[in-house]
């Protein structure tokens, strides 16, 4: 079907192509509906009254209660605090990962030193280890460092990312050597070259790495569950998870809280997705 693009077709062929596209759209729309309907359902029910939402029979709310959002924001535990915690932790982790990974990836991609391949292999190998294995030791480490219930515990262990180093290295390697040679002639050091040339050229890869890191941080559950005790330190997912188990949960408020928790990540995704798709396309999958 690809090969028909931009070529004049006899009308019978065109009809067949149009029918094919119609069919294609029907299938794709069905897929899009199944991807989206839980969110639509969630938003609609977050606007209903309690009995209506609990019954969940009607599709549209009888009365649109936007006040549910205000109530959820004010009444679901320390919701504003959970929200602010998650934003702070997410941004800090992304900054940490970008700085440490860019430096390391550059060295692995561009510099010559003994043990380079071995070190890189060791780093990449950590991606195979299930996260759960490191859970107990890291928990003990946090205790010994007196980091339980602190922001450090939620940020620092995740500020080094083998995945990002791998991703950025792949991208940096595709930058032509000539650029570097020219920069050296101009008297640039590695760090100058990295900051002035490599980083601006690597926007898609950096954004991909940032988005995955932010996603991982914003959506993480098991680790914050382990290393936080006090409600003040909880990130948003733990806050919501604990709200589910609270007795007498008001469904419509829970759904309003969940909708609020989803908004930042959807915004970030929609804003960055063009770069992000390009990042995935250029990085991961080149033989």
């Amino acid at each position: 079907m690809t090969f028909t693009r931009g070529r004049a077709l006899p009308s019978a062929d065109r009809l067949r192509r149009d029918l094919g596209h119609l069919l294609l759209h029907l299938v794709l729309i069905a897929g899009a509906v199944s991807a989206l309907f839980p969110f639509v359902w969630m938003v609609l029910n977050s606007l209903k009254g309690y009995t209506e939402a609990a019954a969940g029979l009607d599709i549209l709310p009888k009365r649109w209660l936007f006040s549910n959002y205000v109530t959820a924001w004010n009444q679901v535990g320390l919701f504003p605090r959970y929200f602010a915690n998650s934003i702070f932790i997410g941004v800090a982790t992304v900054l940490g990962v970008l700085v440490t990974s860019t430096l390391a990836a550059y060295a692995f991609a561009r510099m010559k030193f003994p043990g380079r391949d071995a070190l890189f292999l060791i780093m990449v190998a950590t991606m195979i280890v299930p996260f759960e294995v490191t859970l107990v030791p890291n928990f003990i480490l946090m205790r010994d460092l007196n980091w339980i219930d602190t922001y450090q515990a939620l940020i620092i262990p995740w500020s080094g990312s083998a995945f990002s180093v791998f991703l950025l290295r792949q991208f940096f390697r595709s930058i032509p050597q000539d650029l570097y040679d020219a920069a050296v002639l101009d008297g640039a050091s590695h760090l100058r070259f990295l900051i002035d040339i490599v980083v601006p050229l690597s926007k898609p890869a950096l954004i991909t790495s940032a988005l995955f890191t932010f996603l991982g941080s914003w959506n993480s559950l098991m680790w914050p569950l382990l290393v936080t005790n006090s409600p003040q330190m909880r990130p948003i997912q733990v806050g919501i998870a604990s709200f589910i188990t609270d007795a007498g949960t008001q469904v419509q408020l829970l759904l309003a809280a969940v909708t609020i928790s989803v908004v930042p990540i959807v915004l970030v995704y929609l804003l960055l997705q063009r770069w992000f798709i390009e990042g995935i396309a250029t990085v991961g999958l080149r033989g």
Binding site: S101, L103, A104, T126, I156, P157, G160, A162, H190
Partner: peptide, 15 residues
């Protein structure tokens, strides 16, 4: 260049 990333990965993923 490698040190910061490696220290973090070693401390929280390898060790």
């Amino acid at each position: 260049f490698i040190l910061p990333a490696f220290v973090l990965i070693a401390a929280f993923h390898i060790f």
